[in-house]
Design a protein around this nucleic acid. Structure first.
Lengths: 329, 329
DNA sequence: CATACTGATGTAAGCGCTTACATCAATTGT
DNA sequence: ACAATTGATGTAAGCGCTTACATCAGTATG
């Protein structure tokens, strides 16, 4: 392993100068700089970022904790966070909590002292545990607002409200909400919003599910809805909505005439030639890059500054979701 | 930030003892150990893994470079690598190379000196660049065999051969290969294998595509195949196969009678009530855990040992793929 | 009872890097 | 021509941890 000292010796300068060549090139004479660089890559020098991290008091690593890595919901977020973070010269370490609240905080413990900050995407842990993880440590949450932690959330509620009003305007009074796997805070919120908005307009919401996030689960749910006599459904997920539509096509039910279909996301267009889906689009990529920027902002702040300066205002950024009106309702 | 020294002072021991309490608990008297631990969590001590890494000469971090994070192909691999690596007390840092060969090696440069080893999943970079990245540094490749680098690959060729024979046996002589995005080494390999096997049996392979990995792209490809008059197709991807089948159903073509369909993977079952797909299943999870284990094995080997001991034999592990015969051919 | 051994703890020297401070030559101003 | 300023470089003190080695008491052995 070739070290800075080796490079310095080879170049005939002190290790301080060698260090400066990489860290603050403008502090070094152009000539010396060239010699050092030349020496460095003759020797194949690669900076040891561990040592650098220790000396500088920060690792240049940021953490991103997601409930599920292979989820198309988080994919654009992960990708955006990664770009944003790399743009600022940080490295990203992504950890999959497997949707388990305990492992979220366990991960936070392990990551602390190794990374300069953490983003929790849609965390399921108790707020207190998260707050604890965030004390005196840069943390940003996504889709979860906690009093003392910066956050960026996507306001599905607004889009959902709009959607409910659309359905009401279209004459629907009984509307099904086909919900997702239990344990999701957002799922409850969505149902409640739908119930409130629709209730305020003299309608009624029936909650169905939970169903798995798959096309077949959606397809299988159709009979359930038909038996209940509903003619409008809000599916928590586009895959499920597609399943419903596919099953409807199979049994000869027309969309939207016999069944109006809408979804809370539009993650996937499997392109079966089905009518275009009315769905609430969530700007997860945008959320990711905002969260990334916030975290970089916190982490870059030199930790030595006095408490007053450090006591920044907590930011809660809320991004609007968009209702995209398709042919399905 | 509370350090080991703080804990030691609080506990009234030397920092060496405090260190040992965490690193080699059995070297410390039971009583002292209790006192130190007590002090540590009264103070809320979290070990600084950067410092530990520097002192011990290894970071406890491993890297995994994938061409696409949000790919269902790599999802089981990523997940398995993560489990394996965590089981061994390492942390995993996952980086998305966005399928770009240059960024693969750029990432390798950045990661080096920060992690103890790297897994490249289906790398597209030139072999020389990878070999360079792996010199005197633990590296494992997945789905790419290079002379000096440990690897684990999934032998799609074997399954594909079996598949071709199946099609030949079923009486097909002209078979379409519907290929994926360009630049994939494996895509070429698959086509060539198919051509060889089928050619050896007096058949002929027509290459179509490239098509995108989506259901709609598959659906749109049907007419192309029909015009060419083929009655058997090997799709590089299950989504595409599903699209073909869906389109076939739409135009009244029967599967497998009018068109035999097979796919090289079975990543997704969108469950449209279509006949079960004949496909080659790739054990990506297994590949991931094997690769993880290999890398841990390399990385755990103390780097100080003499060259003779270090010169281990290069391992190339090949996992068999399985041909799962469904109803589509 | 002196000697050798054992096990627990302390001392201090790094790990490879950054950076405040000191140094020194080359400029600049008067 | 001399002090003051500037810019480039060297010196050395850490960053928080691990660990080889020294130390020291307590036990076992002759």
């Amino acid at each position: 392993m070739v070290t800075l000292a080796d490079v310095a010796r080879q170049a005939g300068v002190s290790s301080a100068t060698a260090s400066r060549v990489f860290g603050r090139p403008d502090m070094v004479g152009a000539e010396t700089r060239a010699i050092v660089i030349e020496a460095a890559d003759r020797l194949g020098y690669v900076a040891n970022s561990t040592a650098r991290a220790l000396a500088m008091g920060s690792s240049g690593l940021l953490g991103l904790v997601v409930p599920q890595l292979s989820s198309s919901y988080f994919a654009p977020l992960i990708s955006a966070v990664q770009s944003e973070v790399e743009r600022s010269g940080f490295e990203l370490i992504i950890v999959d909590s497997r949707g388990c609240p305990e492992s979220e905080i366990e991960i936070a413990r392990r990551l602390r002292g190794r990374v300069d900050g953490i983003i929790f995407a849609s965390p399921r842990s108790p707020g207190a545990a998260l707050a604890e993880a965030a004390r005196a440590f840069p943390v940003v949450t996504v889709n979860r607002e906690l009093p003392d932690i910066d956050s960026v959330s996507v306001d599905v509620i607004a889009g959902l409200t709009e959607l409910c009003e659309l359905l009401i305007t279209a004459g629907h009074r009984t509307i099904a909400y086909l919900g997702g796997p239990p344990g999701s805070i957002s799922d409850d919120g969505r149902f409640l919003t739908a119930r409130t908005v629709i209730g305020d307009n003299g309608g009624e919401v029936l909650r169905f599910g939970p169903v798995e996030p798959t096309v077949s689960a959606g397809a299988e749910s159709l009979s359930m809805l038909q038996e209940a006599g509903v003619h409008a459904v809000i599916a928590y997920n586009a895959l499920v909505a597609h399943g419903l539509m596919f099953a409807a096509a199979t049994v000869g039910a027309r969309v939207p005439d016999d069944l109006a279909v809408a979804a809370v996301d539009d993650l996937i267009d499997i392109g079966l030639g089905l009518p275009s889906l009315t769905a609430i689009t969530q700007p997860m990529g945008e959320a990711g890059s905002r969260a990334g920027r916030m975290l970089v902002g916190q982490a870059a702040r030199p930790s030595g500054t006095d408490p007053d300066t450090r006591a920044r205002t907590i930011q809660h950024l809320v991004l609007p979701s968009t209702l995209v009106i398709g042919e399905t309702c």
